[in-house]
């Protein structure tokens, strides 16, 4: 069964359907949260919150607004970004990053294990963006910076960053095209 159908069953309290849904979406949810949050323990915490929220709020899913996976990943991304921003505000992230400098980076490890087709394809398409488009998109999406923070980091006017984001996503769409 697909995530959309499963989510509808989950909304009716079906725990078996939830287990099946977990099998489908836990990898994408955990991978995304880990990419944004980075800290392994905190990533697990956030992923757990997100997956449990799926159970609790399955009835809120509105199929008119898009696919179930899209909704689930939107929720996961928002939770991850919220966590990163509050950690950053508390200055924790900088300290953790200092500590991590002495450990093998998570991304290298995971990329060796998970050389999925989708990952490879997206990476290639990201490479085709201009540097500013790519940085605008990835600083926001993968690192959880607001577009104001992105503008500061890239020393660009706000309007330019918004345009780079839109053009970057547009070019990404053209490149990804029919590759499902």
């Amino acid at each position: 069964m697909e995530a959309d159908e499963l989510l509808e069953l989950v909304a009716g309290g079906d725990q078996k359907a939830f287990e099946e849904l977990y099998g489908l979406v836990s990898g994408p949810v955990f991978g995304l949260v880990r990419r944004v949050v980075r800290d392994p323990a905190q990533s697990e915490e956030v992923a757990q919150e997100v997956l449990l929220e799926l159970w609790r709020s399955a009835a809120r899913f509105d199929p008119r607004r898009g696919s179930a996976l899209s909704w689930i990943l939107t929720v996961a991304h928002r939770r991850a970004v919220d966590r990163v921003r509050s950690a950053r505000a508390a200055g924790e992230r900088e300290r953790r990053e200092a500590r991590r400098a002495h450990q093998p980076a998570f991304d290298q490890v995971s990329e060796e294990v998970e050389a999925g087709l989708e990952r490879e394809w997206v990476r290639r398409c990201l490479d085709r963006l201009t540097a500013l488009q790519r940085q605008s998109v990835t600083l926001a999406y993968y690192d959880g910076y607001t577009y104001r923070e992105v503008a500061e980091r890239l020393r660009l006017p706000l309007g330019t960053v918004k345009t780079r984001m839109r053009d970057g996503l547009g070019r990404l769409r053209d490149c990804l095209g029919g590759a499902a």
Partner: peptide, 20 residues
């Protein structure tokens, strides 16, 4: 645009820890 960002999201999929 959200369908595009979902592609960015899906490309990061990683098996979740069994304990989770």
């Amino acid at each position: 645009l959200s369908e595009d960002t979902v592609r960015l999201a899906r490309s990061t999929a990683t098996p979740a820890p069994p304990a989770l």
